[in-house]
Amino acid sequence: MMTFHRSDSARQVGRGIAGALMLAAIWELSARGLDLPAYVLPSVSSILSGMAGDAATLLQAARFTASEALAGYVIGCLIGMALAVLASMLPNVRSVIVPLATAINSVPVVAYSPLVLLWFGMGMASKIVMVAVAVSITIFLSTIAGLDRVDRKSVDLIRSFGASQLAILWRLRLPTALPLIIAGMRVSTVRSVIVAIVTEMLGAYGGLGWVIYQAVLQIDFVKVWAAIIVASSISLAFFGVISFVERRYVFWK
Rank of each mutant, 00 (worst) to 15 (best):
G33V: 06
G33E: 08
L34H: 07
D35N: 10
L36F: 00
P37A: 03
P37C: 00
A38T: 10
Y39G: 00
V40N: 00
L41R: 04
L41S: 09
P42F: 00
P42G: 01
S43R: 01
V44N: 09
V44T: 10
V44R: 07
S45H: 08
S45F: 13
S45I: 13
S45W: 13
S46V: 12
S46N: 05
I47F: 04
L48S: 01
L48I: 06
S49A: 10
S49V: 05
G50I: 02
M51T: 10
M51H: 08
M51N: 09
A55Y: 14
A56F: 14
T57H: 13
T57M: 14
L58D: 05
L59G: 15
L59Y: 14
A61F: 09
A61D: 05
A61G: 09
A62L: 15
F64V: 11
F64Q: 06
T65Y: 09
T65I: 12
A66N: 06
A66E: 02
S67H: 11
S67W: 10
S67L: 14
E68N: 11
E68M: 03
E68L: 04
A69W: 08
A69K: 00
L70A: 12
G72V: 07
G72Q: 05
Y73K: 00
V74M: 04
I75Y: 01
G76S: 07
G76K: 02
C77M: 11
I79M: 11
G80M: 00
G80L: 02
M81A: 09
M81E: 03
M81D: 02
A82W: 00
L83H: 03
L83Q: 00
A84K: 01
A84H: 05
L86P: 00
A87R: 02
S88A: 14
M89H: 07
L90F: 06
L90S: 10
L90E: 12
P91L: 11
N92L: 13
V93W: 07
V93M: 08
R94P: 03
R94N: 15
S95L: 12
S95P: 00
S95K: 13
S95V: 12
V96I: 15
V96G: 01
V96M: 11
I97A: 06
P99T: 01
P99D: 03
L100A: 14
T102C: 09
A103S: 14
I104A: 09
S106G: 08
V107D: 06
V107S: 03
P108V: 09
P108I: 08
P108Y: 06
P108N: 12
V109M: 14
V110R: 04
V110W: 09
V110N: 03
A111K: 02
Y112R: 07
S113F: 15
S113K: 07
P114S: 12
P114R: 12
